[in-house]
């Protein structure tokens, strides 16, 4: 049962990511990213990181994805005459370059994946042979945030505040000129 759940979430994650890679519509890519992030949240739960899963859903799905969809909609350009006859002479070279970049990218990405996979399948971590069990980590995360990680916690809060204030300033219209 737990295996089935794992494979379901893994398929959701990887399928969503592949769909982001393959779709041509930016809005669809944003929605497939939603599937991927939910799948990653499920994988977090299976890795006994339940606080992280809830944080993932709240930060990514509730924050980052909404920002991304806003960005997509604000920068959306309706399909105008870009594919009309005026671009026809450039068609063949650009198509050629496009397929070249596909080949190179697929080679690089699959090369990295094959390297990582062969490393993983040949390695045997000593750490991973310890017995573990599933347990909730919420209380532990709270204790760690208030003791060992107090200074990074405050620092990252200040960083987030500064970044958000800077983002609103950057995105605002310039009124001086």
């Amino acid at each position: 049962m737990i295996q089935l759940t794992f494979y379901g979430f893994a398929a959701l994650t990887l399928g969503g990511a592949l769909a982001v890679l393959l779709t041509r519509n930016v809005m669809y890519a944003a929605f497939f990213l939603l599937l991927t992030l939910l799948g990653v949240a499920g994988l977090f739960v299976l890795a006994s990181a339940d606080f992280l899963a809830v944080a993932q859903i709240m930060i990514y799905v509730g924050g980052v994805l909404v920002l991304v969809i806003f960005g997509v909609m604000l920068t959306h350009k309706p399909d105008t005459k870009t594919n009309a006859d005026s671009q026809q002479p450039n068609r063949v070279p650009s198509l050629n370059r496009l397929s070249n970049s596909w080949v190179v990218t697929v080679l690089v990405a699959s090369g990295i994946f094959v390297t990582l996979y062969s490393l993983l399948s040949r390695s045997s971590f000593v750490l991973l042979q310890q017995p573990i069990g599933w347990e909730s980590t919420v209380t532990r995360v709270g204790m760690q945030l208030m003791t060992e990680y107090l200074v990074p916690f405050e620092l990252v809060g200040i960083l987030l505040l500064a970044a958000l204030v800077g983002a609103t300033h950057l995105a605002g219209r310039k009124t001086a000129d």
Binding site: Q56, I59, L145
Partner: peptide
């Protein structure tokens, strides 16, 4: 000590800050 989960939490926060600034620049 769950150091990995704490680092992942900080990575998430920094990623949120990064995407906010990046989308403002994109705009």
């Amino acid at each position: 000590r769950i150091q990995g989960q704490m680092l992942a939490l900080f990575v998430m926060v920094v990623a949120a800050a990064e995407s906010a600034v990046a989308l403002a620049i994109v705009l």
